[in-house]
């Protein structure tokens, strides 16, 4: 790792100020991607602004069906929140299967969402839950937030402070792990709301990052059952192809994981 300056921010305003004063600074949350990248000398940043000690940024609040998760809340805290489990167990289950125990105790929801790794789990949840990403400047709908592979709508210096969503009637996440990295080779988050609206969001498979599958959404809105997906074709032309799985295989996984998620929801 190249030398860098470490700053511990005490508030959101303090963090923004610290970063704006840096030559080439970055916000640091759990550091599960950023620190590893710096250790490999694939990134050389002048300054790191640590967000994990800002009190307002941590914690989960549930009011009725309305959920707010602070950006610096760890995966472990999401996975083990009884309040959250009572209204949306699917997101707790998703968090429980991110990485390994070390990662779950360090990594945070805000860091994962801001990084938007194409195989990360949270982007699928946020997109399917129609979540809102709250930043220091504005609120961004998940559908507008994830703009491509590791790309988001965040402006320079903008930081995530929370994620908000309304807990749905039914939801589940089914993940097929990459045999080496154990990231999602394909992960599908399905949501059904009381009004019959259905969302199906796919991570790990899309050539352009997380995406919704309108064909499966329509089929499940008409008939909420795994069998409803039998006749659905997933087009492999927009999917990733790599050494572990080609696009055709991923297309099959999208459908199989969607079926399994619906069965579990």
């Amino acid at each position: 790792m190249y030398a860098t300056n470490y700053h511990r921010a005490s508030s959101v305003q303090d963090a923004v100020k610290l970063k704006s004063g840096a030559d080439d600074g970055k916000y640091l949350s759990g550091g599960m991607t950023l620190i590893a990248t710096m250790k490999q000398r694939l990134a050389a940043l002048s300054d790191l602004v640590d967000l994990r000690h800002i009190p307002d940024l941590t914690g989960i609040s549930v009011t009725g069906k309305s959920v707010r998760i602070g950006a610096a809340t760890t995966h472990y805290d999401v996975a083990s929140s009884a309040e959250l489990k009572a209204v949306c167990p699917a997101i707790c289950n998703l968090a429980h299967h991110i990485g390994d125990p070390h990662v779950r105790h360090m990594g945070t929801i805000g860091g994962s969402v801001a990084n938007n790794d194409p195989a990360a789990d949270y982007p699928a949840a946020l997109l399917a839950l129609d979540a809102v990403v709250v930043t220091n400047a504005r609120e961004i709908k998940a559908g507008d937030f994830f703009t491509g592979l590791s790309e988001t709508a965040l402006e320079e210096g903008e930081m995530i402070v929370a994620v908000m969503f309304d807990a749905p009637a039914r939801a589940a996440y089914a993940k097929f792990r990459n045999p080496a990295s154990r990231y999602a080779m394909t992960g599908v988050f399905v949501v059904r709301r009381d009004n019959g609206d259905v969302r199906v969001a796919v991570t790990g498979a899309g050539a352009d990052g997380v995406f919704r599958h309108s064909g499966m959404e329509a089929a499940l809105a008409a008939n909420w059952s795994p069998d409803a997906l039998a006749g659905i074709a997933v087009d492999p032309s927009d999917l990733l192809s790599d050494i572990h799985a080609n696009a055709e295989y991923r297309a099959n996984l999208v459908k199989v994981m969607a079926k399994r998620a619906v069965a579990a929801a």
Binding site: S241, A245, N246, E248, Y249
Partner: peptide, 20 residues
Amino acid sequence: ATPQRSGLRSTQPTEEETIC
């Protein structure tokens, strides 16, 4: 015998794998 190869749809090496 990766899942892709053992899956019923494609047990032959793909063109990509053959190149590799």
